[in-house]
Write a protein that binds this DNA or RNA. Structure first.
Length: 104
DNA sequence: ATCATGACGGCTG
DNA sequence: TCAGCCGCCATGA
């Protein structure tokens, strides 16, 4: 089976996330009306072209952590992008309560 | 058809 | 809080 939503739906939601805010993979899945498909959202983000303008860095996991091994190039890249927007990553964690985006 | 592998999430000790 | 473990869903070998 294929996902009950298309990549473009995820791309659209991504484009709506304001700078300085974050959302979880599960949230994006919920927003497309497909709870339980968090992993699929992750698969879609993985397919994003390298030079994409979409704010993929604003997507983190439900534990408030970046879903890349700490110290990896991708981890550092995402961390930098977030901090440039004022989203601090302390002890590898992000304060969801303070930055989580709940929709329009 | 089966198995391993993820940018995941939830429950448990 | 944290590490395990398990469940979930798509994808590729």
């Amino acid at each position: 089976m294929s996902a009950p939503f298309s990549p473009s739906e995820v791309w659209f939601l991504l484009s709506r996330i304001p700078a300085g805010c974050v959302v979880t993979y599960g949230q994006l899945a919920d927003m497309t009306g497909a709870p339980g498909y968090a992993r699929v959202v992750g698969n879609i983000l993985k397919q994003l072209p390298a030079g994409s303008d979409l704010p993929w860095h604003r997507v983190i996991n439900c534990k408030g952590r970046i879903s890349f091994p700490e110290g990896s190039a991708r981890y550092d890249s995402q961390k930098r992008r977030l901090e440039l927007e004022g989203v601090m990553v302390v002890s590898g964690k992000i304060n969801l309560k303070a930055h989580q985006w709940h929709g329009e």
